[in-house]
Structure formats: C-alpha cells, structure tokens
C-alpha cells in the first residue's frame, strides 16, 4: 500500500504544482491587459476620430479647412479649368506618379490632408508655382491635385479616408 502511494505521489504533486503555476501565469497575464489597453485612444478620442463636414457652402474655386485627428484637412471645390489643369499633367514624369482620377472620388472635390510629406509642416493653399499648395518650410510645391511637383517632399499630399454621405455632406475617417 505504501509502495503504491510513494510511486503515485510525485506525479500527482507535479500535476498540482503545474496546474497552480499555469493558473498563476494566466492570471498575471490577464491583469496586464487592462494596464496596457488603457494606453490606447479612449472613447472620447475615438468619438471625434470620425467627422462629418457640410460642404454645401463651398463655392467653386474655394476651399474649406477643417481639423481631423489633430491635422488640417483641405476640402477643395475645383473649377472645370482646375480639373482640366490637373488631368493635363497626368502623364508627365512626376516625382510620385499618380493620375488625378486616382486621387478623387468626384472630380469636383479634392480632399487632402494638409501636412507636407517632407517634414510635417502645413503648406499654404493657392500658392507656389503650380497654384496648388506651397510649403514655406523647405519650398515644396504641390499642384491642384495635391501632387508634389517640385521641392524636397517625397510623396503627394495624403488622401484621408472619406465618403460622400450625400451631395452636401462628407464623412472623414
């Protein structure tokens, strides 16, 4: 009787110790998650990560500048000449080749993030050699499609995720 007990004991003991240890590890890991997750954007930050913008008041040839996720967004209502200008240059040898069509959902509306792709300055609208945007920090010139044409910036102005809720309302984010 005592022999069987002695043979039996180590395995039962190991099993108990391993199970307990595993529970401890699982418990500690679960406790860690809330402590990490609290670093993620909170509910009030997420709530303003999507914005709806009324674009009905923007005249052709003018733009609206709104803030989205702490960055400026230019919503530009382009005239027919401006659209023609942008499409005309589609096949030139551009630093970051992209067709105008790929950068808009509706030709009339150009929506870009107003942050220079060089070092993060905010370019000024309607300025520069291509009358799109001009970044005063290091002299990057963007065209009416927001494409980089001249200067140190490596890529075109970023297009934020957006959709047309209706003809007069767009949702960014």
């Amino acid at each position: 009787m005592s022999d069987t007990l002695d043979d039996d004991k180590p395995t039962r003991r190991d099993f108990l110790y391993i199970t307990t240890g595993a529970f401890g590890v699982v418990g500690a890991a679960s406790v860690a998650w809330p402590l990490i997750d609290q670093l993620n954007p909170d509910a009030s930050v997420k709530a303003v990560s999507t914005i709806e913008v009324d674009i009905s008041s923007i005249e052709p040839g003018s733009f609206l500048k709104v803030a989205w996720r702490g960055k400026p967004i230019y919503i530009r209502r382009r005239t027919n000449e401006e659209i023609a200008d942008a499409e005309k240059d589609d096949n030139l040898n551009l630093p970051d080749p992209q067709k105008d069509m790929e950068r808009v959902q509706k030709k009339e509306w150009l929506v870009v993030v107003g942050v220079c792709t060089h070092l993060g300055c905010i370019p000024i609208a309607n300025q520069g050699e291509y009358e799109g945007w001009f970044c005063p920090c290091h002299g990057s010139h963007y065209d009416i499609s927001g494409r980089i044409r001249k200067g140190p910036a490596p890529t075109n102005l970023e297009i934020p995720p957006y959709e047309f809720v209706s003809d007069s309302l767009i949702k960014i984010g």
Partner: peptide
C-alpha cells in the same frame, strides 16, 4: 470564478 479556483489550487499546493 477564476480566483476561487486559484485559491483552492493554492490551498492544496500549500498543504501538500
């Protein structure tokens, strides 16, 4: 629920 099971396991571990 987790804690109750863990307490029992710890109890058996400690007594053993």
């Amino acid at each position: 629920s987790f804690l109750i099971i863990f307490v029992l396991l710890m109890f058996f571990t400690t007594t053993r």
